[in-house]
Simulated assay, not measured.
Amino acid sequence: MDRLIYTAMTGAAHTLNQKATVSHNLANAATTGYRAETNAFRAVPVYGDGLPTRAFVVDSTTGADFTPGPIQQTDRELDIAIRGSGWIAVQLPGGEEAYTRHGSLQVGPNGILQTHNGFNVIGDAGIISLPQDNRITIAKDGTVSAVPITPLPNTVAIVGRIKLVDPPENQLMKGPDGLFRMKDGTVPLADANVSLVNGALEGSNVNLVHEMVSMIALARQFDMHMKVLESAERNAQQASEIMVVRA
């Protein structure tokens, strides 16, 4: 009975957590560069005196789906999408380095190349400062160039190169802000093999049909756990009644 109650109780609680993850994925189905979150669980025994038969559910693995999303053409010069694997390095307010696939860039009020949410884009030599009154272009290798609007539009000046990295996926972890970081806190080197698509953005890799089916399956799974708990409660009451009658 103990094993039944522990497994059903913790299973129901983690099913609710998994439903929250699926809901989060559905809410970000249209978020640029979003990587769907994943959950997995397993049953383990409870260790300790007097608890040899009990078991409960724990998080086994949590991570993200690294499948690339669809590339959508925007024809905006500061929009970039990564072709295949790879990440854009950004600088957090505390100076730490993080990584994103959201390539909608902008020029900050101080002339710094930033992401759409205000994080500075890291270049091979630090942050990238852009000159005023210039048209900015980004090459497929991340090279950022400034083309004067007047008077000599043919004069091109290279102002930096976006740091593009491609660390192993199993070494990355997703933060609550949607950015990825290295699990061991190291900083990967720039990877020259990462290629960009200019004038395009990568869409979310959330599979709407899969997530909707998962939501339905999880709802039924939660109902099953609750029915098991109700059955355990009913069996305990019947056992108590039998003991009272025999006494």
Results as ranks from 00 to 15, higher is better:
M1G: 09
M1I: 09
L4E: 03
I5Y: 01
T7A: 08
T7E: 01
M9D: 07
M9K: 12
G11L: 02
G11K: 06
A13V: 12
H14M: 12
Q18V: 02
V22Y: 09
A27G: 01
N28R: 07
A30G: 05
A30D: 13
G33V: 01
R35I: 00
E37G: 08
T38R: 15
F41E: 11
A43V: 11
A43M: 14
V44G: 11
P45N: 07
P45M: 07
Y47R: 15
G48K: 09
D49G: 07
D49K: 09
L51C: 07
L51Q: 14
A55L: 05
T61Y: 15
T61F: 14
T61L: 14
T61E: 15
G63C: 05
A64T: 03
A64W: 13
A64H: 13
D65E: 11
F66S: 05
G69R: 06
P70Q: 11
I71Q: 05
Q73R: 13
R76I: 05
R76D: 14
R76N: 13
L78T: 02
I80H: 05
G84A: 03
S85K: 14
A89P: 01
V90Q: 12
Q91S: 11
L92M: 15
G94Y: 07
E96Y: 10
A98H: 09
Y99A: 03
T100H: 09
G103C: 05
G108F: 02
P109F: 03
G111N: 10
G111C: 12
I112A: 08
Q114I: 02
T115M: 07
N117T: 02
N117L: 03
N120D: 14
I122V: 14
I122F: 08
G123I: 00
D124T: 04
A125C: 05
I128H: 06
I128R: 03
L130R: 08
N134D: 14
I136P: 02
I138H: 05
I138C: 07
G142C: 09
G142M: 06
S145C: 05
V147M: 14
I149Y: 12
T150G: 15
L152A: 08
N154M: 06
T155A: 11
T155N: 13
G160C: 09
K163S: 09
D166N: 15
D166Q: 15
P168L: 00
Q171D: 12
M173N: 10
M173W: 11
G175A: 10
G175M: 11
P176L: 10
G178E: 00
M182D: 02
G185R: 03
P188Y: 04
P188T: 04
N193L: 08
G199K: 06
L201C: 05
V209P: 09
R220E: 00
Q221F: 02
M224C: 03
A232S: 13
R234L: 08
N235H: 06
M243G: 05
R246G: 03
